[in-house]
């Protein structure tokens, strides 16, 4: 049976909106699957409509505080704009800022700022930047912020940062770590630089990931909301989509929480140790491979060790060089 493309488009837009804006019920999902299965053109129209719907996020990010956003404010004088999910929850907390000015303050100060922010082991540091952007630095992070008339650049030498970027179409916001840079116009994302590995997670809007380690062949990739990219060796981006709970799990460190959903004990311990000078040591490779599930206070290695020992039938022994986890005797 031939169905007009117009009719199909109209059904596709409804499905695209519904499935992107909220979780479908099992019934709806089955209905959508049946509809998609019925005709390849349904799939085509749905793909096109979904893509256009997502592309609107890019335009929304570009528009910033411009006319489109203001139109709402003007028609809604009584309402406060609600905070975006995840984005602005913690910004009111004004944390002390380690601010080191490099060099004296010469005449170009007015136009160019260069500040270095460092967080200590176990510390989560909130920083308000001059343009209204915010950043949160996870444990043991070093970020150099340089602003001038045309650029907003953050050099992340090590560690992890979460960035909420104020919109400024004239000055792109770029976070660089080694050969990898992440360019945003107005968006919310995090960058984590560990040994030879960079992780980028976007929670809102869109960023462009650039690898210019080889100037002959610069690699670019756009990342949208809920996308996560890993760069382990240069010239390769591994991109995956994350659901909302996975995104908040990965960003739980901003609240001082670490959330594990079945990572190996070795990985979980590595993450705990990033946050504490008192380290946990896993003495047994079999134990190290066991999965860990649960939420832990990043600053409490002893609590973590005790809980995990109970859950995995292990022993937790405190020694001079840290807390040792080993299999309980008799196992």
């Amino acid at each position: 049976m031939y169905r007009s493309s117009r009719r199909i488009d109209s059904e596709a837009t409804e499905w695209a909106v519904r499935s992107h804006a909220r979780a479908l019920s099992a019934e709806e999902q089955a209905e959508l699957d049946t509809w998609l299965e019925a005709d390849p053109r349904h799939r085509g129209a749905f793909l096109r409509a979904s893509a256009a719907w997502m592309d609107l996020d890019r335009l929304a990010a570009l528009s910033g505080t411009g006319g489109l956003a203001q139109a709402v404010q003007a028609s809604q004088p009584e309402s406060q704009p609600e905070p975006a999910p995840l984005a602005r929850r913690r910004w009111a907390v004004a944390a002390s800022i380690a601010l080191v000015l490099v060099g004296a303050i010469p005449a170009w100060w007015v136009h160019s700022h260069r500040n270095v922010y460092v967080s200590q082991v176990g510390e989560v540091r909130h920083v308000d930047l001059a343009d209204g952007s915010n950043m949160v630095l996870n444990t043991e992070t070093r970020a150099t912020v340089q602003y001038d008339d045309a650029h907003r650049e953050i050099d992340l030498a090590k560690g992890e940062g979460f960035f909420q970027v104020a919109k400024d179409p004239v000055r792109p916001f770029v976070v660089r770590t080694g050969a990898i840079s992440v360019r945003a116009i107005g968006t919310v994302f995090s960058v984590k630089a560990t040994h030879h590995r960079v992780d980028v997670t976007v929670t809102q809007g869109m960023v462009e990931l650039v690898d210019d380690s080889n100037p002959e062949h610069v690699l670019r990739r756009r990342l949208g909301a809920n996308e996560h990219a890993t760069v382990e060796e240069t010239h390769r981006f591994e991109v995956q989509h994350l659901d909302d709970s996975e995104v908040s799990r990965r960003l739980g460190w901003r609240d001082g929480l670490l959330d594990f959903e079945g990572q190996s004990l070795l990985e979980a311990v590595g993450e705990m140790n990033r946050h504490n000078s008192k380290h946990i040591v896993v003495d047994d490779p079999l134990l190290a491979a066991r999965p860990v599930v649960g939420q832990f206070l990043a600053s409490d290695p002893a609590g973590f060790a005790t809980t995990v020992a109970v859950a995995l039938g292990a022993q937790s022994i405190e020694q001079d060089d840290g807390i040792h986890l080993r299999r309980a005797s008799g196992q």
């Binding site: 992107h20 893509a51 997502m54 990342l223 949208g224 995956q240 989509h241």
Partner: peptide
Amino acid sequence: MQDRARHQWVATHVLP
């Protein structure tokens, strides 16, 4: 949606 990555790819590389 499982396929958001595909949708995003289409948005970035095909729609234009």
